[in-house]
Computed example of a mutant assay.
Amino acid sequence: MTTTAPLPDAAPANWVDRYAPAWSRPWLRLGRFDRPTGIWLLMLPGWQGIALAGAMAGRAPDWKLLVEFFVGAALMRAAGCAYNDIVDRDFDAKVARTAGRPIPAGQIKVWQAWAFVALCCLISLGVLLTMGPLAIGLGAGSLALVAAYPFMKRITWWPQAWLGLTFNWGALLGFAAATGVIEAPALLLYAGGIFWTLGYDTIYAIQDLEDDALAGVKSSARRLGAGAPRAVAMFYAVAVALALAAAWTADLSLFFTPGLALYATLLWLQARRVKIDQPRLALVLFKSNTWAGLILFVGLAAGAGRV
């Protein structure tokens, strides 16, 4: 199989293009392993749910669950990306940023991509079955959100909101895996994550404004236009308020507040810097959400302490 240049939204020195055997690169690109930001953004809500559950019990997050959620997030994100590429292969061929993906570029056939999706889902199912009944049910329920997501950009200007529902499902799943129940703090954390994703994926969509318009693809960035930076600031403000509400209803200690303050600061800086006519900056700001989500996780874990 021929070697191709790194995709536009992958780091030029990413590990796939530097170290992976040539035959494996299209498969790793299909699962977006050359762009690990998405793995983190899918995993971190689950880690946050686990940390919240632990903090409410006055203990550290369950490290075994953290490992399981890392593996599950990597595999399910890979499956979701491959599924998305199968559905969107005709659109992707028309967009400069996505035309080089393995399916539209002809490196992987559609039936092979389906096999890749099935394998990732089967391994993830094995991880899920180690958890309790409620967590298993929630994990199975997330498939409906994943299956519907690629079609949202065809029927609504707000596919980023649906991505928020999907990517942050792990907050409920992580809490349920740790406790066996769903309580109000977990629901508030999930709601906050939805607005967080709505903000950062609106920033991400700025990269494709012109191509999306030509291809007829809808997005919050297109709908908001010049008002996107102001809207991102509003989305992020709601995300921070809901994270605070989750911590308050969970009766976390004041040790949570430095993490929340830093999380809010990073989101504010993103909203302040984002520009509708600077797609490269949009990608940089989008990737910084890995740190924002990790900081919130640490803050929630620290909330287990007592002043």
Rank of each mutant, 00 (worst) to 15 (best):
L163E: 07
I295Q: 01
I103M: 07
E68G: 10
A148G: 01
A144T: 10
L300K: 00
F91Y: 12
A171E: 02
K109A: 15
L143M: 15
I276T: 12
K109L: 15
F286D: 15
G174K: 03
P12L: 08
I50R: 02
I295K: 03
A243D: 10
I103A: 05
V110T: 14
F69K: 05
A213F: 01
W27L: 14
I86V: 15
G299K: 04
Q107E: 15
G259T: 03
K64W: 04
L296Q: 03
M131V: 05
A178Q: 03
R25L: 09
P185T: 13
A246C: 07
A20F: 04
A176S: 09
I295H: 05
L252S: 05
I295G: 00
L242A: 06
M76V: 13
A96Y: 08
A93I: 01
L66A: 11
A231R: 03
R222H: 08
D212L: 04
W196V: 02
D88Y: 05
A228C: 09
R222G: 02
M152C: 14
F235V: 07
A250L: 04
N14E: 11
A233M: 10
I182R: 07
N168S: 07
L28N: 11
K218D: 12
L119T: 15
V274S: 03
P45D: 01
A10T: 10
I194Q: 01
A105P: 02
L189M: 07
Q207M: 15
V87M: 06
A261K: 06
T130K: 05
P229A: 02
S253T: 07
Y190I: 00
G132P: 05
A118P: 13
A93E: 13
G259I: 00
L172C: 06
A93V: 01
A161W: 02
A241F: 04
A246G: 06
R18L: 03
